[in-house]
Structure formats: structure tokens, C-alpha cells
Design a protein around this nucleic acid. Structure first.
Lengths: 164, 164
DNA sequence: GTTTGCGGGTCTCAATTCAAGACTGATAAG
DNA sequence: CTTATCAGTCTTGAATTGAGACCCGCAAAC
């Protein structure tokens, strides 16, 4: 199977990866969230091949994650800004940040920290249940088929002992 | 810059992507969280090239996300199980799932839903502030340098109007 | 009016990675 | 003896990437 075809899968993880699962895309989004908007700045900060950057930005625009906003006529120049969909990738970035800080730490620690402007505390983003507010982890979340007739694990033997 | 070098960056997003940012890796993790453990099952479910799968699994073991557990001597066979670090990728998967369901939806809707066993409700995983419990979004989270002497945006012009 | 510089790309080419699937080695079952 | 299972490895041709040269429109400097 080719990577491109993941976008047709029903699984949202596959669909998400088809859009932002490229090796560079999430770093582009990260920079966007920090306020970077221009081609040259992305290129300088990321050290990504220009051809690849141009292709990724175009794809993100096509997918509705970024939009091109002109900031100069004569010469016509655009900058890239996050759409609402783009802004909503923040939880993905924060979840990944938290994981990496815990499990692939850098000797000098993280370069940034996050402050919640609502309560003005430096905080750690925490995934919680929308219904009761308790923190989630892999032992208190259970996946179940959305359709009565579908199976949880197509094309795989079930493990003898339940995993979660 | 090559993808492989991202692991040396200080930014945790880059470090995380260096470990799990491959096009297939997060799908392997997804399957692991659903209980898939064996080479043949990953291969059949994902349709990934066997060479690539073998390489990814080995990398995930090396990075401490999976561990190999023998389930048969004669012939010696191993299965792959999530370590604690692997289980803690659940928030990343859930955040991506939620994003994709909202912004890259499949016509038939998602194949799975998630139930919090604590309160026994089907729920939507929500990222909240660890200090006050309020939901987070890109407009109420502010990134700030962890070190007093570091700058938020190295190598980039600051936007004239603040983004967030 | 010629040159220089900036911003945002496109083009080329070699190196790397990937997809697809044949093949291997150990063992067990028929 | 033959076939099947499982977890890989190997090979080959195709696709993607990295690095950097080049291009275009325009403005400011010379």
C-alpha cells in the first residue's frame, strides 16, 4: 500500500496521517503556531529542501489546514496562516510534546513551556474525559466498534489475553 | 537537513517526530493499542512492505516504545508489545483521531468510538489545563521560553501582529 | 539604466527510501 | 515426503528526498 492511499481509509488515524503525517508537516504546523508565516522563514528554520517545502505548503492549503494571504501586491506575495482546522492541531502538537519530553528528553530540557492564559499557570496539557473530566490513559479507555456489525480487529487474530 | 537528524534537535516536537513521525509508525502503534502483536498481523492489516515493517519494529524496540516478548521456543518466535512509553502515546493517537474526525471525515463516519471505563460514557477526549482543568485551545495557550536567555523564534522575523 | 537584493518559488541530479513480492530457515502437521 | 506457518531477508524498479543552482517580478541603489 502506498502512503497516499491512507487518505481513503476509514480509520481517522490513517486519514490524519495522510494529511499531516509527512516527516515535515507537523514541524511546519508547529512553526505556524509560533507565528512563522513565510516561505523563507520556514525554509531557514527547518532546513527543509525548498522543493519539498513548496509541495507541503501547497498540500496543506489544498487540505484546508493553511490559507494563503497576500501581504503585498507588486510583487504579489503571500504568507501562510493557519485556518481553524490548522489551529485545532494544537492538541496533537501538545500531546506529542508532552510525550517526547517524557520519553525522548533532551539533556537541556525543553526549550519552551506552556502557560494557560485562563488561569495564568505554567501547565502540562492533560487529556481528559469530556463526560467526567478524569484524565485518560490506555487502561481506562476502551475502543468499541461504532457500527454494530463491524469488528474491532479486521484481518487479525484476537490476542488470547485482552490487552486493555 | 535529513529526517534522521531531527532527533538531535532540542524541540520535543522534532524529537517526537524522529521517533514516531514515520509515515507508518503511528499506524503500528494504533494497531498495538488495539491488541495486534505479531509481524504477520501488522503486515496484513497495514499492507506495508515487509522490509519497512521489520525496520520500523526494530527501531521502535530500540527506542523503547515496543518490546519483544517470546511466545514460542522451537521455533523461537517473538511478539511486539507496547512498553509504558508506548502506552503513553495514546493521547497523541486520540488527539489525532479527534482532529481527523472533525476535519478529514470519512463519509461513513469513524469506525470506532471511545468509552471511558471510569464513568462508562462514550466520550470525546479533551485536552485540558493540568492546573485549572479548563479546555485548551490555541488562543488560551501561550508558549514562552523555558530559559530566560532563549528566544521564542530563532531564525525568523517576528510577525508584526502577534499570532496568539 | 544597470546592478543588486529580496521573496518565493521551480528545476536538476544524485542519493535515499519505498513497494512489491520472491525467497529462506526453523518447525510442525498431515 | 509435502505442505503450511511465521518472521523475517533480499532484490529490483519506482518514487521521494536533499542540496543547491536557477528564475521571475519588483524595488532600491548606484
Amino acid at each position: 500500500m502506498r502512503w497516499h492511499d491512507l487518505g481513503d481509509e476509514r480509520c481517522p488515524v490513517a486519514r490524519g496521517i495522510a494529511t499531516i503525517g509527512d516527516r515535515w508537516t507537523l514541524l511546519v504546523i508547529r512553526d505556524c503556531l509560533l507565528g512563522v508565516r513565510r516561505f523563507e522563514d520556514f525554509q531557514t528554520r527547518l532546513g527543509i529542501a525548498r522543493r519539498v517545502l513548496a509541495e507541503r505548503l501547497a498540500l496543506l492549503v489544498e487540505r484546508g489546514v493553511l490559507r494563503k494571504v497576500p501581504y503585498s501586491e507588486k510583487p504579489l506575495r503571500h504568507e501562510y496562516r493557519l485556518t481553524r482546522a490548522g489551529h485545532e492541531l494544537l492538541p496533537v502538537i501538545l500531546a506529542l510534546t508532552k510525550w517526547a519530553d517524557a520519553h525522548v528528553p533532551h539533556p537541556d530540557g525543553p526549550p519552551l513551556r506552556h502557560r494557560h492564559t485562563g488561569c495564568d499557570h505554567v501547565m502540562s496539557p492533560t487529556l481528559t474525559c469530556s463526560e467526567c473530566g478524569e484524565p485518560l490513559d490506555s487502561h481506562n479507555v476502551r475502543a468499541e466498534p461504532a457500527d454494530p456489525d463491524s469488528t474491532l480487529l479486521a484481518h487479525a487474530r484476537r490476542p488470547e489475553t485482552a490487552t486493555r
